[in-house]
Every structure is written in C-alpha cells, then in structure tokens.
Design a binder for these strands. Structure first.
Length: 271
DNA sequence: CTTTAGGCCTGACGGC
DNA sequence: TGCCGTCAGGCCTAAA
C-alpha cells in the first residue's frame, strides 16, 4: 500500500538505474489496471532513451525521448529491478526491458495502479492538473491549510487527505500526524485554529520525512521484494492500534470511521 | 463550491 | 479442510 514515502523511495532507488538507459521493449503482460494500459504504448516506447524519473503526489513520471509515462502504484503496486530470468509472478503486469540486460517489473495484484501516456506538458494532464501542493515542498505550511480550510465543515482528517488540499497524505500518515498535532480526526476543518494547523503541517512533513529516511535503509529490500514488508518498519504510534494504550498518556486509543476510513485517536491527547 | 457514496480489485482473515 | 462474507486501501467519478 504505497503511500508517498514508499513512492519516493521507489523513485530514488530506480532513478539511477533508469537514467540514460534505452528501453529495448515494454512487454504488457496484463493491461488490466485501473485504466487499461493503452495498446500502442509498447510501440511508442520501443527504443526510447529514459531521461529521468520524477514524482508528483503519488504518481511517478517517467520521461523518455519518445514521450512521458504516468505510473501509479495504487494500493498494492510495486516496481522491482531484476534480471530477465527472475521467475515471473502472478500479477506481474509490465516488463520494461532495458539495454543493460536488466528490467523493471510492475507488480499489482489489486490493479488500482495505472500506466498511461503522459503528453507534455505533464502538469496539465487531467490526473495531475488539480493536485494541491507537495507536503515536502516550500509552498505547504500551516497558513495554506488554514486558509484553504475556511468554511469547511467536513472532518479535518478528510480535509488533509484531499488531494486538492495537499497531496500524498494517505490514511496512515493522516492518522499519525493528527495524533502528533493533538487534533481529533473528526474535528471540522474550519474549526481548527491557525496554531493547530501550523503544528499539523509540521507533523505531516515530519512523519513523511521520517518514513522516507527509514525507507532509504531498507531500499534494497524494497526494490527486490514486493513492498509488502510494511511501512519500512516505521513505528506507527496510533494507526491500527485502537484498543491499545496511548503511547503518550496511556489512555485506551479509540477507533472511529472518519471520511470512510478507520481512524485511531487518543481521546485524551487529541482535542 | 463542498461533501458523500459507490466502485474498482485481490488477499487475508474469521466464522462456520 | 473448505467455503464464504467482510474488510482494507487510493482515488476517480457521479450524485447530493
């Protein structure tokens, strides 16, 4: 279940392996993803030189001399770098064969991911056009959240998971950041104070950066395995721990469904 | 405009 | 042991 740190770690791991490589073939073994992998994509990419691999939100953008590619890992997707004689697995959808004899495989059992052409300029693509600021970028802070949150009656947790507000904050890191900021996930976004949004923005950045840092230490595993080893072993303080004691005060953590997602919180620490 | 619900999928899990 | 219902999760899309 790649969240932003996993996607960024994947990008950092793969970028040096892909840059300046030539694509020999793209084999579409199973085009059934969130949207079908277009027929003709393989032909378009054959012989292309890879210029780079960047990230926007949880999307990976592969830039080549013969056009861009937009990748999303959805819920269960992963990319691995391996040699062609590595046994193929069920749900290996794509093989991107490189001129150095290695290949990249997209593995995605639940098929929520995608692989689509990305015509220039990338930022106008419908899937990218309405995205909010990057949480690790310079134009994301408490002021942004506060101003965007004016008049919002929905829960703050759903608000920060809204890709138009800030990208890349999934259920896990939203839960963790709200705990660290001392804000209950069910609070109306419009009722969270400026000071609280400052804390929240800081903690969103913090939990994501912490996860990326830890991701770097397990990068080798991440690229070779299927990404199912969990969140880099990052110590999650409250996510998935309803019923357990709060790591700060010892009160029993509760669970509520907020914005259609399980939300653990401490009734004492979070207000 | 905001907010909510539905849908897409498979694998893991629990109950019988 | 096997079958089946439920759940998880990102995020688009339609509808309220």
């Amino acid at each position: 279940m790649p969240e932003l740190p996993e996607v960024e770690t994947t990008r950092r791991g793969l970028e040096p392996l892909l840059r300046d490589r030539r694509i020999v073939t793209l084999e579409v073994r199973d085009p059934r993803l969130r949207w079908p992998v277009p027929t003709g994509l393989a032909t378009q990419l054959a012989g292309a030189t890879i210029r780079g691999l960047t990230r926007r939100a949880k999307y990976l953008l592969l830039d080549t001399s013969q056009g861009g590619i937009l990748l999303h890992l959805g819920m269960s997707g992963s990319l691995r770098h391996c040699s062609p004689d590595t046994p193929l697995r069920k749900h290996d959808h794509l093989r991107l064969q490189l001129d150095d004899g290695f290949e990249i495989r997209l593995h995605d059992p639940r098929r929520f991911g995608c692989c689509l052409p990305l015509p220039p300029p990338p930022e106008v693509h419908p899937l990218l056009a309405r995205l909010g600021p990057e949480p690790l970028g310079s134009n994301f802070d408490g002021a942004t959240l506060f101003h965007h949150g004016r008049g919002r009656r929905g829960p703050v947790k759903g608000f920060i998971m809204d890709q138009a507000v800030v990208v890349g904050v999934g259920n896990i890191y939203a839960t963790e950041a709200l705990f660290l900021a001392g804000i209950r996930p069910g609070r109306a976004a419009g009722r969270v104070t400026r000071r609280e949004y400052d804390r929240l923005a800081r903690h969103i950045r913090e939990v994501l950066e912490e996860a990326i840092t830890q991701g770097g230490t397990t990068l080798r595993d991440f690229l070779r395995e299927d990404g199912s080893h969990g969140y880099f072993g990052q110590s999650l303080r409250v996510y998935g721990r309803a019923g357990e004691p709060c790591p700060t005060c010892g009160n029993t953590l509760r669970n509520r469904v907020i914005a259609q997602r399980a939300s653990a919180y401490c009734p004492a620490c979070q207000r």
